[in-house]
Amino acid sequence: MRRTLLCAALPLFLALTACSGGDEAPDGEAVEEAAQGDGQEGTEPSEEDAAEATDAARTVAEGFVAALIAGDGELACTFADESAQAAIVGQGDDGQDCVEAFPDYVAGLPGAEEIEVGEITVNTDLNGEALVANVEMVHPEETLGSLEVREVSDDEWRATRLPGTTLGGA
């Protein structure tokens, strides 16, 4: 399916650049970049911004993992934004809040005590405005996915998507 989308997108890109009023054809590098883009990420942040985002994401991820290991729902929920908390609530019974639903969330994860923070990648959202960090959650026997961390306000970072849940955030 991806190949079909790329094949369909390339003629459109060429047609749009040909109609742009310029006399020059697009260079091969520009065509290749357009064909390879998957629309899932924004622009690449500066090295300084990426380093700050990586540090903040690591702090959130390590805190969240420590809360998982300790079974501390109150602490874990402080690391999650509203949508991620709603995803945790979705794992529990009706009427529970994040803290009450946390044990059900943990029960759905394989061996929470073995989860570790892995590689962190930083990019921006589709608009290129907000930094987004994806933290690989490592487990020796299972593929857990990643913890997504975003800056929700100045110098305040929260998990917006959690492993083991359906989409729980932005």
Rank of each mutant, 00 (worst) to 15 (best):
M1F: 13
L6Q: 15
A8Q: 12
P11Q: 00
L12H: 03
F13Y: 08
A15R: 07
A15Q: 11
L16T: 12
T17F: 06
A18F: 01
C19R: 08
S20I: 01
G21V: 00
G22T: 14
D23T: 12
P26L: 06
D27R: 04
E33Y: 05
A34Y: 11
A35Q: 02
Q36A: 15
D38Y: 02
P45Y: 04
S46G: 10
E47K: 13
E48T: 14
E48I: 13
E48A: 14
T54V: 04
A61N: 05
V65N: 00
V65H: 00
A66K: 06
A66E: 13
A67Y: 06
A67T: 00
A70Q: 08
G71M: 04
F79S: 06
A80T: 06
A80I: 03
E82H: 09
I88A: 08
V89W: 01
Q91N: 08
D93V: 04
G95E: 03
Q96I: 05
V99I: 12
E100T: 07
F102Y: 15
V106D: 05
V106W: 03
A107D: 15
I115W: 00
I115N: 03
I115V: 14
V117Q: 12
T121Q: 11
L126N: 09
G128W: 05
L131Y: 01
V135S: 03
V135Y: 00
E136H: 04
E136S: 06
E142W: 09
E151A: 08
D155L: 14
D155W: 10
D155A: 15
A159Q: 06
R161D: 15
T165G: 05
G168K: 05
